[in-house]
Design a protein around this nucleic acid. Sequence first.
RNA 1: GGCGGCAUAGCCAAGUGGUAAGGCAGAGGUCUGCAAAACCUCCAUCCUCCGGUUCAAAUCCGGAUGCCGCCUCCA
Length: 486
Amino acid sequence: MRLYNTLSHAKEDFAPAGPSAVKMYVCGITAYDLCHIGHARSAVVFDVLVRYLRYLGMPVTFVRNFTDVDDKIINRANREGVAPEALSAKYIEAFYEDMDRLGVLRADFEPRATEYIGEMVRLAEHLIAKGHAYATPGGDVYFRVRSFAGYGKLSGRDVEDMRSGARVAPGEEKEDPLDFALWKAAKPGEPTWESPWGPGRPGWHLECSAMSEKLLGLPVDIHGGGQDLIFPHHENEIAQSEAAADKGFARFWVHNGFVRINAEKMSKSLGNFVTIRDIYACFLPETLRFFLLSSHYRSPLDYSADALAEAEKGLRRIYFALAQIEETLAATKWSPSPLPKALAEEFASLRQGWRDSLDDDLNTAGALGQIFGLARLAGRVMDDKGLRKSEGGRELLTGVREALRECGGVLGVPAGEPAQFLDALRECRLNRQGVDKAKMESLLAERAAARAAKDFALSDTLRGDLEALGVEVKDTPAGQTWDVVA
RNA sequence: GGCGGCAUAGCCAAGUGGUAAGGCAGAGGUCUGCAAAACCUCCAUCCUCCGGUUCAAAUCCGGAUGCCGCCUCCA
């Protein structure tokens, strides 16, 4: 497959460097609050990347870390009067709850920064020994940015241009404003670890360098994260790791775009974020997943409740098609007519299109387009009285069902059983629209009775009443069914 | 100020040189006691604007305008 590499600003053919599994490291969350949709996007994007690489037959060793020691965690813990470890543990737990429901698979390794303090200290020592870092009298350790010639290569910055932006906070003993902390001397009220420079704690960037090397070995094949990590986080990781190891840190840098709200980046600092749980209160997790995959991962994605409602409609349609396919396939008698060649070709082309889309820099939006095409193709076959019960029709419907399942395995959409999903969706919509369930039930019962008595006038009146309630009734040979007006 | 990204129908969104996928909404039709669903058909001669390269550009180059992001923590 081809993957866009931030380092080269171009799509490149991806293959692992070595004969072993693809080595993939993605920056996870700093555990100090609930995850928002932006975190969900990043998690889903890299989840799909891992799944797709495995689908292509490449084994993947996937590492996604948790930052569990950091200014934000300490500040919040102190504010709430709890231990930092307890705070981060709580939000790691929340992360799992949210992500499990989203269908994000667990990584092979999910290291926490505090479990690798020893590796970080050793890395810092090594950098000092090589002249790439220095300890200050106060017990801090800084990376000497100007000692690393490649600094700026990921983010496209020139060290000379950065001088104006860099600054030294009061009390810092940097040689150069550009230098960044590898180790921070202990301050009162902070968790600390022993080190050659006295008690302190690691700087943020160091953990990813230490854990990548320890768990995967350098260079890793793919290093990922949100676009906001490109600078300074990933730039600094490169500097640390490459200065220490004298070899490449990561071959492919993959960054997902932001989720926006009112055309602005959704972020903690702007305070304009919507948590994953906020969404779950109104929509099914799979709807969120579908929404996140409905545009290319590097493009900005505008969040709105309307956009989510539209995603819900699309997802429902796919599940509805799947439900109808299964119902049709439950038949036992099939006429011997074969599948018309044109339809067989259309099927093959859609299926190939799905694969081609994902092959091209993980174009999930394109892939979903092919999935809709498959659903429509199946619908056409089922609507054709001759084909519907023919061997050829069965062959096609079986193929579409298989393709949709395959999609579910890679994109995580559609992941469930249609009947179950449609029921869950109905329930979800009932709650969201605040439909009076008792009233609905009684109106439905009344209408069923009216229909049994062939009192169509009353039946239609009741349909109107139900519609006013937000419920749409459909009459089928098997009786009336209902759904919530979207 | 430095660096980068994006501009495709009413809305969302694919498409990086060969003549505009898909979804939502909308219109007509088949079906239906009436509806709904489903299916069929239609819905951008054109891709922000202006130049240029080419037999050929939404796709490449230059410029303009608008929006966004990074440069401080941030997925």
